[in-house]
């Protein structure tokens, strides 16, 4: 497959994987491995000082995977910027998946606070990958602010409902000069394939891999979905038509005319 380039860095995989909600670190590792992903997202949270547990980072090979910390939990730009700075202080490369989701029910990204935070973080030298509503105008603004991707949602986080924002994502893809990563809501390999067939540059998946009895198999299934979709996009899909067009010859029928 052709490679994906984000902020001048080359990736062979077009599937990014989130590390949340897996039943065990083993399940997470096996899903990452089988998916072929090279970018994995992580979150920052307070340590439970009464029960610190072990660190999940020891289960991620930092030579192999680019750690992409997110700003999940941020309700406004200020909180997102604070989390991004903490992630960098923790020794991460300055890559940040910007998430500002003040609404606890649908976890929809706040376009105004996301743009505000993006402007600040780009100035501070971060490579910003913003999770965003599928809004082509906002995608333009984020790109102008200097984000290295745009990441429109297919459906709300964790819903597995697929690409419900198809027409708007098509416009974003048509207009974008940075990679378009469809994030959130992709629940099946067919959804990932659909995003790639539309011309998205990559997808990010978490819940669909974590919320299954077989994360490794699902990881591989998504890998194949993404590869199939990308290949089809590069090959060029045939045009859609309103009326039938026969695939078999319309001559030589075994009947009297």
């Amino acid at each position: 497959m052709d490679s994906l380039v984000i902020a001048g860095r080359k990736f062979n995989s077009r599937l990014m994987v989130g590390t949340g909600k897996f039943s065990s670190n083993n399940a997470m590792q096996s899903a990452m491995e089988a998916s072929g992903c090279e970018i994995v997202t992580v979150a920052l949270r307070r340590v439970d000082i009464n029960n610190p547990g072990d660190s999940m980072l020891q289960h991620i090979d930092r030579e192999r995977y680019l750690l992409l910390p997110n700003t999940s939990g941020a309700r406004d730009a200020e909180e997102a910027v604070r989390l991004a700075r903490l992630a960098r202080a923790a020794g991460c490369e300055p890559w940040i998946k910007l998430e500002v989701t003040p609404d606890p029910y649908y976890l929809l990204p706040d376009p105004i606070e996301t743009l505000k935070a993006a402007i600040i973080l780009v100035k501070e030298g971060f490579n910003v990958l913003p999770y965003m509503p599928a809004d082509p105008v906002l995608a333009r603004h984020l790109e102008e602010a200097g984000t290295v991707t745009v990441m429109p949602l297919g459906a709300p986080i964790g819903t597995n409902r697929g690409i419900r924002t198809r027409d708007l994502i098509n416009i974003i893809i048509e207009q974008a000069n940075v990679p378009v990563v469809v994030d959130a809501g992709l629940g099946a390999p067919s959804h990932a394939a659909e995003a790639m067939e539309m011309g998205a540059d990559a997808v990010l998946v978490n819940t669909a891999l974590a919320d299954t009895a077989n994360p490794a198999e699902m990881g591989e299934a998504f890998k194949k979905g993404v590869e199939a979709g990308r290949m089809a996009y590069l090959a060029g899909l045939g045009p859609q038509r309103g009326k039938a067009q026969a695939s078999s010859p319309l001559t030589g029928f075994l009947r009297e005319e």
Binding site: A43, V47, I49, S55, M56, L57, L67, P69, A184
Partner: peptide, 10 residues
């Protein structure tokens, strides 16, 4: 004082 660590997240 805030003591913060990485956890799984999407």
């Amino acid at each position: 004082l805030e003591i913060i660590q990485f956890v799984g997240g999407g």
